[in-house]
């Protein structure tokens, strides 16, 4: 029997993918959300988490940016 999973396909670079897996492990988005690890640049995730994930990513990018003094 074929396994069928509904979700959202995420396409990204491999660094972002590792970050998503990290978030999945630590549960920072509120529990597990990765449904299938497809390949280096693709993941299948829970559709309900997409919005929360987008916010989280924004936060992360903020932390990683150096802002010069004006």
């Amino acid at each position: 029997m074929v396994k069928v999973v509904k979700g959202t396909l995420v396409e990204c670079d491999s660094t972002m993918k590792q970050f998503l897996l990290y978030l999945d492990d630590t549960g920072e988005v509120g529990g597990k959300f990765v449904l299938e690890d497809l390949d280096d640049t693709h993941l299948l995730i829970d559709s309900d988490c997409v919005e929360r994930l987008k916010e989280k990513i924004d936060d992360l990018m903020d932390k990683h940016t150096y802002v010069p003094d004006k």
Partner: peptide, 22 residues
């Protein structure tokens, strides 16, 4: 682009097929 590093597409995953033909 920094804000848009992820591309989301709603989709359905199919796996665990019995044979290559399937």
């Amino acid at each position: 682009n920094e804000r848009n590093r992820l591309k989301f597409d709603e989709g359905v995953f199919y796996g665990q097929f019995n044979s290559d033909d399937d």
